[in-house]
Structure formats: C-alpha cells, structure tokens
C-alpha cells in the first residue's frame, strides 16, 4: 500500500455507482417549452424554487448538449415531427419528462390538432400531472428521475452497446466472407487448373476459411 492510501485518501466503489452519481447530479435539461407549462418552468428556475439545487441549472437550448428532454406544454400535430427530430438528435443516455396534462395525455384539449400525449411520438420516463404542475411537483419528478438514473447500470449498458457492436461486426464479416467465396469461385473459373491450387493456397490463409 502506498502511504496515501493508508491515510484514507482513497475509497473504492463500483464503476456503476460512480458514473450514476455523476449523471444524476448534473442532469442538464433541454426545455422544449411550448405553452403555459413553460412559464411555470421559468418560475422553477428562478430564485424562489431554484433548480440549481439539484445540479440542473444549466438549461441548454440545444439537444446535443442535454440529458433530459423536458416537454412542457401542448404538442400539436404540426409540432410532432419536430419533437421527434429533437429527441433523435439527443445523445445517449437521454431521458424524457412529460410536464403537464397536455404533454402526458393531451389534457383538456381533446381536439383535431393536439397529440393525445407525447408517448405517441417518443418514449417518456416520468410523467407530471397538473395543469400546470406546481414547481414542487416538478422537483418531485426530478427526484424520481434521479432515482431512475441511479438504478441504471453503466456496465450493463456497455455490454448492451457492445453486443450491438459485436453483432454488427459479425454481420459485416459474414458479408465479407460471402463476397470472398463468390470472388474466389469466379477467379477459379477464370484461371487454369494449375493456377487454381495456388489460388486456393493463397485464400486459405484468410482467417474466415474455417466457416466454409
């Protein structure tokens, strides 16, 4: 043991805990505020309620730099493609809060132009009821979200992501191999028998030979 460790300057933890601790205490929201609920969100930001207490004061107006998509207000059909696009532009990991009755279910606008709940378009993590929700309930939702973030496993996500990648690699190599066999056969037909054995020798060196 090094002397620093003996003095208690080092602690051990799991990677999951550490990553989630960091993530949950700096959830940067992207306020997709459209209507009345956005005004209430503005109140949440200001001095009396103070969103910075939970590390979320850094309201980003670009989807690429934010973690939480905060949909506050009515979503109409005219806006629906835009909301979807914005969600797609956000980087993983990303969470979505539906703030207010309108975002959850369409609210009391049950009409030809309003989307009955944003979950028709994008997945939602936390719903907040109310028309508009009070700042307190907004905080409650943030705490819920923090709990949710806490439970997520970075390692599992990584395995999941890697799984995709591995699948991807496998698929690509399979394509590559098929392509190779095709080309080999073509080549075989073109060259004479004597050369054929040589070509075989060359191709056998290629690692995908085994699957044949």
């Amino acid at each position: 043991m090094t002397p620093e460790a003996r003095e208690g300057n080092i602690f051990t933890s799991s990677l999951d805990f550490l990553v989630n601790w960091g993530r949950k205490n700096s959830l940067w929201p992207f306020p997709y505020g459209t209507a009345c609920c956005a005004i209430e969100f503005m109140s949440t930001e200001t001095a009396r309620y103070d969103l910075s207490r939970i590390g979320s004061e850094y309201v980003r107006f670009t989807p690429r730099q934010s973690d939480v998509l905060l949909v506050a207000g009515t979503i109409t059909y005219k806006q629906a493609p835009i909301l979807k696009r914005i969600y797609e532009q956000m980087a993983e990991p990303r969470w979505v809060i539906a703030m207010g009755a309108c975002a959850c279910s369409g609210g009391f606008y049950d009409c030809y132009c309003t989307v009955p709940g944003i979950d028709h378009i994008i997945p939602v993590d936390v719903y907040i009821g109310g028309c508009p929700p009070r700042p307190e309930s907004f905080f409650d939702a943030m705490f819920d979200l923090q709990k949710k973030v806490e439970d997520e496993s970075y390692m599992k996500q990584r395995a999941e992501r890697l799984k995709d990648q591995i699948e991807d690699i496998k698929r690509k190599s399979k394509e590559c191999r098929e392509d190779l066999i095709l080309r080999k056969n073509e080549a075989c037909e073109m060259v004479s028998n004597t050369v054929r054995s040589k070509v075989n020798d060359v191709l056998d060196v290629f690692p995908f030979k085994k699957g044949r």
Partner: peptide, 10 residues
C-alpha cells in the same frame, strides 16, 4: 400555428 390547440372548436 405550432401551438394551435383548437380553442375555438373546443
């Protein structure tokens, strides 16, 4: 029109 919520119809 991005927030046209149909007030008049409602």
């Amino acid at each position: 029109g991005y927030l046209h919520r149909g007030f008049e119809k409602m």
